[in-house]
C-alpha cells in the first residue's frame, strides 16, 4: 500500500442485541508498528480484533487490512493475518509439530513449504525441544508459544494477539514479551492487554479503549509527556532545613514544596512547578551556587498506569458532559 497503513478502521460499530460492544471506532495502524489495545475487561478489545480477523462482521462501518475489506474480501485478509484469540485455544490432543503442520496446511501452504515453515517458527519460538510432546501436557508458557508459532506459520503481514500473556508467570511473560518484540522486526503487531506495564514495555503506540470507544491514541512517550506536564521534581539534598525552605520560598517557579527527612543527613524535597516547566536545571543551579550536596534529582515519570486510570476514570465522563 502506498500510504503505508496496514489497518484502516472507520466508524466501526458492533452491537450485540442492541448494546454496542464497540461504538464508532476510527483508527489506523501503520506498517511495522507494535500497537497495543489497552482497556478494562469488556472495553471492546476482543470484539475489534475478531472483526479484524474476519471471524465476525461489524454492524456498521468499515475495516480494511492491507487495503482489503474484512467483510467482502475475507479470504484474502485471512491470508495476511496471523491471529491468536483470547485464551489461545489449541487442539490439546495433538503433538506440537503435528498441530503446527496441520495449521500451516489449513492456511494453504504446500507440504514442503509447511514443513519448512514449521521448522522455522518452532526455532523462532523455542519449541524445537518439545516438538514431539502432546500440547495438552505442556505448560501454559509453552502453549502460548505454540499459539504464537501458529500465528506466524504463514508469514502474515499483520499479527493480531488477543491477551498474549494472560495467565502466565512472570518468567513466561518475560519470554513471550521478548518474542513479540522480536517479531516486530518483520511484522506489524496488534496486541491487546489489560496489563499496563506490558503494553508500556512492548508497544510503541497505545490505543486506550473503554466502553467501546477509543479514549486516547498516541505513542507511550507522548502520553507520558502529556501527563508529566506540571510533573513534580524530587531532589535529595544535604542542607539545613531552614536554608532549604528559604531557598524554595524565594524561587518564583515553585508553586509549592514539601520537605521530608531521608536517610542520613539528606532531606527529600518534592517540588511542584507553577507552570509546566522543568525545574531540574533551576534546582541544580541553586545547589551549585550554595555548595550543597545533591544525591538525587529526578522528575516523576507517569507510568501508563496513571494515564490509564486518569483517562478511564468514571467521573471523567461526567466532567465531559
Amino acid at each position: 500500500m502506498s500510504n503505508g497503513l496496514i489497518i484502516e478502521v472507520e466508524n466501526l460499530t458492533k452491537r450485540y442485541a442492541g448494546h454496542p460492544a464497540i461504538d464508532g471506532l476510527t483508527f489506523s495502524v501503520g506498517r511495522g508498528e507494535i500497537v497495543g489495545f489497552l482497556g478494562p475487561n469488556g472495553a471492546g478489545k476482543s470484539t475489534t480484533m475478531r472483526i479484524l480477523a474476519c471471524f465476525m462482521p461489524a454492524s456498521s462501518g468499515t475495516a480494511r487490512v492491507a487495503g482489503l475489506d474484512v467483510f467482502t474480501q475475507a479470504d484474502e485478509v485471512r491470508r495476511r493475518i496471523g491471529y491468536m484469540p483470547e485464551n489461545n485455544p489449541l487442539h490439546l490432543d495433538m503433538r506440537v509439530r503435528e498441530y503446527l503442520k496441520f495449521r500451516a496446511r489449513l492456511k494453504g501452504l504446500g507440504i514442503g513449504r509447511s514443513r519448512e515453515r514449521v521448522d522455522v517458527v518452532m526455532q523462532q519460538c523455542g519449541l524445537t525441544e518439545v516438538s514431539r510432546r502432546i500440547i495438552g501436557h505442556l505448560s501454559k508458557g509453552y502453549r502460548q508459544r505454540v499459539g504464537l508459532a501458529d500465528a506466524l506459520a504463514h508469514e502474515p503481514e499483520l499479527i493480531i494477539l488477543d491477551e498474549p500473556t494472560i495467565g502466565l508467570d512472570p518468567h513466561q511473560i518475560r519470554s513471550v514479551r521478548q518474542l513479540i518484540k522480536d517479531l516486530a522486526r518483520h511484522h506489524t503487531v496488534l496486541l491487546s492487554s489489560h496489563i499496563l506495564s506490558e503494553v508500556e514495555m512492548t508497544c510503541n503506540r497505545v490505543l486506550i479503549m473503554n466502553q467501546g470507544k477509543i479514549l486516547a491514541a498516541d505513542t507511550t512517550r507522548n502520553l507520558q509527556n502529556i501527563m508529566s506536564d506540571g510533573g513534580q521534581v524530587i531532589a535529595e539534598i544535604a542542607a539545613p532545613v531552614a536554608e532549604l525552605r528559604a531557598c524554595w520560598e524565594q524561587m518564583g517557579e515553585i508553586e509549592y514544596f514539601d520537605i521530608s527527612p531521608s536517610e542520613g543527613e539528606y532531606l527529600r524535597c518534592a517540588l511542584t512547578p507553577r507552570s509546566g516547566l522543568d525545574l531540574r536545571p533551576l534546582v541544580f543551579e541553586q545547589v551549585r551556587a550554595r555548595g550543597w550536596e545533591l544525591r538525587e534529582l529526578s522528575r516523576a515519570q507517569h507510568s501508563l498506569e496513571d494515564i490509564f486510570v486518569h483517562i478511564t476514570r468514571p467521573d471523567r465522563e461526567e466532567e465531559a458532559r
Binding site: 475478531r50 485471512r78 491468536m84 485455544p89 489449541l90 487442539h91 495449521r103
Partner: peptide, 14 residues
C-alpha cells in the same frame, strides 16, 4: 466449546 472454532474460522478456509 474449546475455542478452536475461532482459530479454524480465521484461516482462509471456506
Amino acid at each position: 466449546w474449546s475455542g478452536t472454532y475461532e482459530t479454524l474460522m480465521t484461516t482462509p478456509v471456506k
